Simulated scan of single mutants.
Amino acid sequence: MTLHKEGSATITISTLLFLMLSVVLYYLLFYSYPVIFWILETALLIVYGLIISFFRIPNRNYTVDAHAVTAPCDGKVVVIEEVQPDEYFNDRRIQVSIFMSPLNVHVNRNPVDGEIVYNQYHKGKYLVAWHPKSSTENERHSNVYRHSSGREVLTKQIAGALAKRIVNYNKVGDRVKQNDEMGFIKFGSRVDLLLPLDARINVKIGDIAVGGVTVIAQW
């Protein structure tokens, strides 16, 4: 397991704060109130460990399949429905939404091989990620991938109540590989996939998706 580059500043600051607070607690409490010291020190360790784990990149065997759409992120499938998209597409699409909790791996990955034909950042609100309007009203970053088959897939990285920074590495004209990094969302949110109506959906609501491994759909 490695740590993601997006965590460098956060981890450095967290390490310094953890060490400083530990030293202060030691001098203030260790000799007079050792039990309270260890309770607070344990709490600090747990928080520090959660911050470190948030930026983890686990070792995985990714699914590589030209006929498959892989999960763009880790998380729980919370929406599968036919929708009328609010951008790029004029035809109806199947939306699959994956909710990421703060405990999930937060690297976002390209669901297919293809050319990036659309890349757009949208300012917006910070509704909780499971809110029905978060797909259209929250801060988000959208990509459209044009697969070699001619099919197009749209992804939306969507901010939530805790997620305050969306990072996207793709640019229009890029030719990207399935499961390479698309970006990163800090501290919990969701990613939507908008798929052609003829895509065969392989997951159901409540399933746990593993980014780059789980096959969301096939064509």
Rank of each mutant, 00 (worst) to 15 (best):
L127P: 10
K186A: 11
V105L: 08
S148P: 10
Q95S: 03
N179D: 10
A161Q: 08
K156N: 09
L194S: 03
R151V: 08
Q84E: 09
W130S: 05
V203R: 02
V77I: 15
F184S: 12
A68G: 11
L127V: 04
V203C: 02
Y118R: 03
R109P: 07
H131D: 15
D74G: 04
P132H: 14
K164N: 15
S149V: 12
G114M: 14
G124C: 13
S149K: 13
G150V: 10
V112T: 15
S97C: 06
C73H: 07
K123P: 01
I80N: 05
C73F: 03
D198I: 09
P102H: 07
D91M: 01
G173W: 12
Q157G: 03
N170I: 04
R140L: 03
P72T: 01
N90E: 11
I158L: 07
H106R: 10
N179L: 05
G188N: 11
L127A: 09
K125E: 14
D198P: 05
Y145G: 04
R109V: 11
I80Y: 09
V128S: 14
E115R: 12
N170V: 09
K156M: 03
S149A: 12
K171W: 04
E87Y: 02
I158T: 03
L197S: 07
E181L: 04
E152L: 00
E139S: 08
A129K: 02
N179P: 07
L197E: 12
S189K: 04
K186C: 03
Q120F: 02
Y118D: 06
S149T: 15
E181Y: 02
H106P: 12
Q120Y: 07
V107Q: 14
R151D: 15
A129P: 04
F99Q: 04
A71H: 08
R175H: 15
L197Q: 13
L154A: 05
A71Q: 07
G75Y: 06
G160P: 06
D198W: 09
V203N: 03
L162T: 08
D86Y: 04
K186D: 00
P111N: 08
M182R: 08
P196A: 14
E181Q: 11
V105I: 15
L103W: 03
D174L: 06
H122E: 01
L103S: 12
S149N: 14
N90D: 10
D174K: 08
I80F: 11
N138M: 08
R151Y: 12
